Amino acid sequence: MTAVTIFAVLDLLGTFVFGLSGAMVAIRRQLDLFGIMVLATATGVVGGTIRDILLGDTPPAVLQNLVPLAVTCAAGLCGFFFFSLIDRLNRPVMLLDAVGLGVFAVAGCQKALVFGLELPGAVLLGMISAVGGGVVRDVMAAEVPRVLHEEVYALAALAGALTYGLGLRAGLPGTYAASGAILLAFVLRVASVRFGWRLPRAPGGPR
């Protein structure tokens, strides 16, 4: 597989897992099928859409072909028909989020580098790509976005994008750099939940 193909697959994978996480949240909020599809689609495509707009790659990919929408619709239907099976996993939304964070952080960073951004900007855009869909999902579900209060979330995406960029700078093949970066973001996110890692909070604030 060529690098272009690999990153196209990564982009679709991130779209699917984020779409599925949106569907799971919608079902728990007792939304109907239409609401499930809307939340799945918004969660799956918003991060990539923000990335494309900031890079000036317009119209965004989601408006140029039907593949991203088809992927999010498939994710929504998977959630609709297999919710009970997926829900047996421990913290399914968190696990799906962790996968999506790593995948979109790497894909966003890669596209930014292709468009000529320097490493700091590419890493930042990778993080924005990774957290954008989750923010919209939580807002639409009337929840405080996880990026604002959960254990290591945006930092996991930032670490993944930075690891990918530095890996490329060090001369690693793109597939190795991407695999290591996605794994790091996933492990950081899951470990932060498992072990209760938190960033410092205001000492005088409520607990």
Rank of each mutant, 00 (worst) to 15 (best):
V93K: 10
V46F: 05
G167H: 07
A107N: 04
D57S: 11
A105R: 01
V67A: 12
V71F: 03
F104P: 07
R207C: 03
L184P: 06
G19E: 03
L188D: 04
T5A: 13
P59R: 03
D11G: 09
D57F: 00
A154Y: 01
P60S: 11
L54P: 04
F104G: 13
V93L: 12
I50P: 10
M140S: 09
A159L: 13
A130G: 14
G126N: 08
A156S: 15
P173Y: 00
G79L: 11
F83L: 14
I36A: 09
A107C: 07
F82V: 13
F195D: 09
R169A: 13
A185D: 08
A154M: 04
P145N: 08
A107G: 05
L63R: 03
L55R: 01
G134L: 07
R189I: 08
T49N: 06
M94R: 12
S129F: 02
L33Y: 08
V144Q: 10
A112W: 00
M24E: 02
G205F: 03
P203T: 04
G165T: 04
Q30C: 11
L66G: 13
Q64W: 00
A3S: 14
D11K: 03
F16G: 02
L119W: 00
G14A: 09
T5V: 11
F83D: 14
L199V: 10
E118S: 15
V136D: 04
V45K: 01
R146G: 15
F104K: 06
G100V: 08
D52N: 07
L33I: 15
P145C: 11
G121K: 03
Q110Y: 10
G196Q: 00
G79D: 11
G35D: 06
G174C: 05
I50S: 10
V4R: 08
V62R: 02
E118F: 09
V17H: 08
W197M: 08
G47S: 06
L39K: 03
L96C: 10
M24I: 14
D97N: 15
V193C: 13
A159K: 00
L184E: 04
P60N: 06
A202S: 07
A3G: 09
C73P: 00
P173A: 13
L96R: 02
Q64K: 12
D32L: 11
P68R: 04
E150K: 06
L183Q: 10
F83M: 12
G102N: 04
G102K: 02
F83S: 14
A170M: 14
T49W: 02
D52Q: 05
A26S: 14
C73Y: 08
A107W: 00
V144C: 11
I86A: 15
P200T: 06
R91S: 15
L155I: 15
A177L: 12
